[in-house]
Design a protein around this nucleic acid. Structure first.
Lengths: 186, 186
DNA sequence: CGTGCCATGTAAAGCGTTACATGATTCA
DNA sequence: TGAATCATGTAACGCTTTACATGGCACG
């Protein structure tokens, strides 16, 4: 369900787009809070068109495959607004690594430490990417503060901040866990 | 897939259990990193028995429905160990609230603030619950430090710490977001 | 007398991942 | 010449959620 609305918001904020563009936008920007494959995106855009939430236009291109460019309709905008107004539940957490930790005594501590270090690197890389996004998309934040942003930009910046906090928290926890397990070696 | 292993680790660490017990254990303890409905749990336990990862015994009860109590087998333990040794990918993030924020300019700021305050309360409650769990299950941490724990307990404590950090981060971010949106009201 | 706990299940629908498929262009 | 980008799709499978179903006991 929520994917449909995430797509609508992309069409609304970033303008009319082809499925391909939306996927790219998801990979680049939206990935800090939502993920979708191209198969899902194309399917959902077609289904929303049936419901009248989007409309499409085919753009003929030479030297490139033709595009189907989707736009949000008034009905789509209404649906999106109604959805935004609804309360949202926290996402159910599903963290494989924590499940592995519970049975972690089955394997050598060094194996756990290696895995935690690997995860720490992944989250550090994610953090760096998000910080780079912040520097690119919101440069004024660093000089004039977040209050310099427009309301719309500020809202999006808050989502980015959530991503940054999330990845930072992961990096810190990995550090804590590596230290802790180190205490039990020899 | 991962559900199966989470169940095995519950059987291994917490001992033999009925499906019902496992579900309760998931609701109470495991919910900070995994969630499953009773339908999933019962199904998975039966499937693992077919594979020989678990074995079961029916306990007749008067005044209560009979139970099927599952135990982990040697094969199950081997499979679990092999799984723990495999690298695990970070969970894909799917955060509805962030998607709503991106289209948040469609609704009055007060609506956003109300929703953020509601979410903050939810995460604060989650945080309190996890801290209470820490106090109950690991009382020595507060007096003698985390190093007083056995290796097994320490590993589980680390998972709990991750939950605590996660909920704390949410509460803080909600605060930040409420403040930020407040800046744009008159 | 109603609510909630104990204890287990079936069935259907929805959502998400993975694999497979095409075919031209651009860049190293 | 091989890889990456543009652009869109089908199909199968598996996981997750939601709804429906049963039936006794205990507690207020």
């Amino acid at each position: 369900m929520a994917l449909a609305y995430a797509l609508l918001s992309s069409l609304l904020v970033d303008g009319s787009q082809s499925g391909y563009d939306v996927v790219k936008c998801f990979d680049e920007q939206i990935s800090c809070y939502w993920r979708a494959t191209h198969q899902q995106v194309y399917k959902e855009l077609r289904e929303m068109e049936k419901k009248g939430w989007t409309c499409s236009e085919t753009i003929a291109q030479t030297q490139r495959p033709n595009k189907t460019v989707y736009s949000i309709t008034d009905l789509g905008r209404q649906e999106l607004t109604a959805w935004v107004l609804q309360p949202s539940q926290p996402t159910a957490i599903r963290e494989e690594l924590m499940a592995k930790l519970k049975s972690g005594f089955l394997v050598p501590p060094t194996a756990l430490i290696a895995e935690l270090a690997r995860r720490q690197q992944i989250h550090q890389a994610g953090l760096n990417a998000l910080k780079a996004m912040e520097a690119t998309d919101f440069p004024t934040v660093f000089t004039a503060g977040a209050k310099s942003l427009s309301y719309e930009a500020r809202l999006y910046h808050l989502a980015l901040r959530r991503g940054i906090r999330y990845e930072s928290e992961w990096v810190e926890w990995c550090e804590e866990a590596i230290q802790a397990i180190g205490d039990y070696q020899q």
